[in-house]
Design a protein around this nucleic acid. Structure first.
Length: 491
RNA sequence: CGGGGCGUAGCGCAGUCCGGUUAGCGUACCUGCUUUGGGAGCAGGGGGUCGCAGGUUCGAAUCCUGCCGCCCCGACCA
């Protein structure tokens, strides 16, 4: 009867797909590569959004909204940008349908062809810089610190729920500055925001770094990123922040008069995180029983399950449950009392485990008699009995403890799977053995990077920002190097 | 785009090779009774254009032709 998940150790990819569906996070839609985000999954995304949005506001940003459609000509104004995105764009060519002559349904009306095709945005730099052109004349108009929450479409060849879908939800920040230094500082600030969110809320340690030239965002001068490690030893890019230099300002002719009266191009940044974070969250902590959610992002932090035979028993359990619920709610904890009599307690236990609810309180006749409740932790599966009077304090403490425990667990896991290597043989051995992050010297050339990728499927995830200076030799070419970079096989 | 798989009840599948009563199983759903400290038991019940179109045949989920769609692996990819 137990409907167990596939085991991570046996088929990680199958486990991932199943957990997404079984925990009611998302499902495939009728359209290839697109997903339906279900209410429970969406409520986790909303928790993420709320925190990220708060952090944006705290750093001086405001939200706006730009159109879904990008005129085709805009995309080609920045050469690298169009090169990077052209192959995965959805294109709108017509604006009307009509009934087919043979009665077979509706067909595209050939009379209704658009003069200029519209691209469904894969990202919004072009529309936004075209707009900024009109917003900026002088240094007094700068900086512009705008973010938008939106959906974008990238026609990916192969998709995976949350990790890579044809349409996805994200936020994209687009800022404009008077100086290079200010734009660079903004790029790094937002990277810090992402890293803080990942570590403090998702309980997921990340490496901050810079992308190599070949992994850079099309149109950027520098791409900064946070890289996380998943339980199967593969890396996941969890967020990026781009220093755009004056590239888009030049492409869209966005100039401003400085204090000294001289006219110059504006400096730009863009940065984003997406529903891919949901995938990261799932893979960072969950186990073979289901989701494990960090308390700070769990839509339901505590669930109370009553165990009873008679209405009388339920009545006295409800009294205790209501008391606990009222007190915890007043300290901002989200708590659900599941008194449905349509499901058995055992069913509920399994269900809330699958959904990653951090704490479960069970109250039965035995507890009522003893003035106790049973609390079970999702992360360690430990159960303990508490005096009813001590429950609320215990819960508050346990939520904090779970948050830091799963972070520590993920951190230790990453430490175990981070290997320093000095030769190409050691490199391949580490990759094929335990996987994870492999720290190695690299000669700084695209050629070497490409050869390593072709031979091992490992890419340079980033050049870490806290890179230690260390003289060494490139594992591939033997040429001198001044520090290690992070290699991994990645999603 | 290459390789593999799948399409039969809400979901998961068997049946297809070798055509033949009324298309079956698990689960979910509905009703009733008994249950409830780890996915309850028993009894009864409802639910199907077998992906679509055409063909062969007395007869097609099953054979033939064409088409459509989705998933997985790979190549590709902020």
């Amino acid at each position: 009867m137990a409907k167990s998940l596939p085991k991570r150790s046996e088929d990680y990819s199958l486990w991932y797909n199943e957990i997404v569906k079984r925990a009611d996070l998302a499902e495939h839609s009728a359209v290839r590569g697109c997903m339906v985000i279900k209410p429970y999954g969406y409520s986790i995304w909303e928790k993420m959004q709320a925190e990220i949005d708060r952090m944006f506001k705290e750093t001086g940003h405001t939200n706006a909204y730009f159109p879904l459609f990008v005129p085709k000509s805009y995309l080609s104004k920045e050469a690298d940008h169009v090169e990077g995105f052209a192959k995965e764009c959805a294109v709108v060519t017509h604006y009307r349908l009509k009934n087919a002559d043979d009665g077979s349904g509706v067909v595209v009306d050939p009379e209704a062809k658009l003069e200029e095709e519209l691209i469904v945005r894969p990202t919004s730099e072009t529309v936004i810089w075209n707009t900024y052109k009109n917003w900026i004349q002088s240094y007094r108009d700068l900086p512009i610190l705008v973010n938008q929450w939106a959906n974008v479409v990238r026609w990916e060849m192969r998709t995976r729920l949350f990790l890579r879908t044809a349409e996805f939800l994200w936020q994209e920040g687009h800022t404009a500055h008077a100086t290079k230094g200010e734009a660079e500082a903004e790029t790094k600030q937002m990277l810090d925001v992402y890293a803080e969110f990942a570590e403090c809320f998702m309980a997921m340690p990340v490496i901050k770094g810079v992308k190599t030239e070949s992994e850079r965002f099309p149109g950027a001068v520098d791409t900064y990123c946070i890289e996380a490690l998943m339980q199967d030893g593969k890396a996941l890019q969890a967020g990026t922040s781009h220093f755009l230099g004056q590239n888009f300002a030049k492409a869209f002719d966005v100039r401003f008069a400085g204090m000294d009266g001289k006219v110059d191009y504006v400096w730009g940044t863009s940065w984003g995180v997406s529903t891919r974070l949901m995938g990261a969250l799932i893979m960072a902590h969950s186990d073979d029983q289901g989701l494990v959610l960090p308390p700070k992002l769990a839509p339901i932090q505590v669930v109370i399950v009553p165990i009873y035979k008679t209405d009388e028993q339920l009545k006295s359990i409800r009294k205790v449950a209501d008391q606990i619920r009222t007190e915890l709610r007043s300290s901002g904890i989200s708590i659900k009392f599941d008194d449905r009599d349509t499901q058995s307690p055992g069913w509920k236990f399994a269900e809330y485990e699958l959904k990653g609810v951090p704490l479960r309180i069970a109250i039965g006749p035995r507890d009522i008699e003893n003035g106790t409740v049973e609390i079970a932790r999702r992360d360690t599966k430990e159960k303990a009995t508490y005096q009813t009077s001590a429950v609320c304090d215990a819960i508050r403490g346990l939520l904090d403890e779970i948050q830091s425990n799963i972070y520590r667990k993920a951190f230790d896991f990453r430490s175990d799977l981070t290997t320093k290597v000095n030769t190409y043989d050691e490199f391949k051995e580490a990759l094929d053995g335990k996987g994870g992050f492999v720290m190695a010297h690299w000669d700084g050339t695209v050629e070497t990077e490409e050869k390593i990728k072709a031979e091992t499927k490992a890419t340079i995830r980033c050049i870490p920002m806290d890179q230690e200076e260390e003289n060494g030799h490139c594992i591939y070419s033997g040429k001198p190097s001044k520090g290690r970079v992070v290699f991994a096989r990645a999603y």
